[in-house]
């Protein structure tokens, strides 16, 4: 089937199998391997993307569900070399270790900060509780989200 959607602002018209998972479409067909897969069953959050600005798990979505929607992946967050404030603060605050959860964490953070520009640490912990990290113990991720939120408020 042919599906039409935008990926990081670019129009896509693709012929793909109706049962193709979005994570496979992104990684295998479109070469967007920044979206990770770590469980395939919606338990870890590594494959988080934004669909119309709302965080979704791309391992639980089929390609047909993208019809007419706007998809943002980690590759769409920075403008070339210039990192998004969330990405910048993840790097600055040491929130990236192995980095396999990081793209999903950034996308979940983007969703959170749209809904709540001034979350406290507890709210951040709640918002990211669907995204597993095995390296950091979460602390520097929480630090990074706090710092990104402050910077984005200042810029707004």
């Amino acid at each position: 089937m042919i599906i039409h959607f935008t990926l990081n602002g670019e129009n896509k018209n693709l012929d793909c199998a109706p049962d193709c998972r979005v994570v496979d479409l992104l990684r295998e067909e479109l070469g967007h391997t920044g979206t990770k897969e770590a469980c395939g069953s919606g338990e870890c959050g590594a494959c988080t993307i934004l669909v119309d600005g709302i965080s979704k798990l791309s391992c639980l979505m089929l390609a047909a569900q993208l019809e007419g929607h706007a998809v943002t992946t980690i590759e769409g967050m920075s403008k070339g070399e210039e990192l998004h404030p969330i990405q910048k603060s993840f790097v600055e605050k040491g929130a990236v270790q192995c980095g396999f959860c990081s793209p999903g964490m950034v996308m979940a953070t983007a969703d959170l900060l749209q809904r709540n520009p001034s979350p406290d640490r507890k709210e951040i912990r709640e918002a990211l509780s669907g995204n597993l990290c095995r390296c950091t113990g979460y602390q520097k991720i929480i630090d990074a989200v706090e710092s990104a939120a402050a910077e984005m408020r200042d810029d707004a």
């Binding site: 990684r27 295998e28 070469g31 967007h32 391997t33 920044g34 979206t35 990770k36 897969e37 992946t73 980690i74 590759e75 967050m77 920075s78 990192l83 990405q87 993840f90 790097v91 600055e92 040491g94 990236v96 980095g99 396999f100 990081s102 793209p103 950034v106």
Partner: peptide, 23 residues
């Protein structure tokens, strides 16, 4: 000093290729 890890930017942009990312 807390020199920033040089692997940070490529990992956070989703561009660093892990073994699982090769097709």
């Amino acid at each position: 000093t807390s020199l920033k890890r040089t692997d940070g930017p490529s990992k956070i942009r989703g561009l660093e290729k892990y073994a699982a990312d090769y097709y």
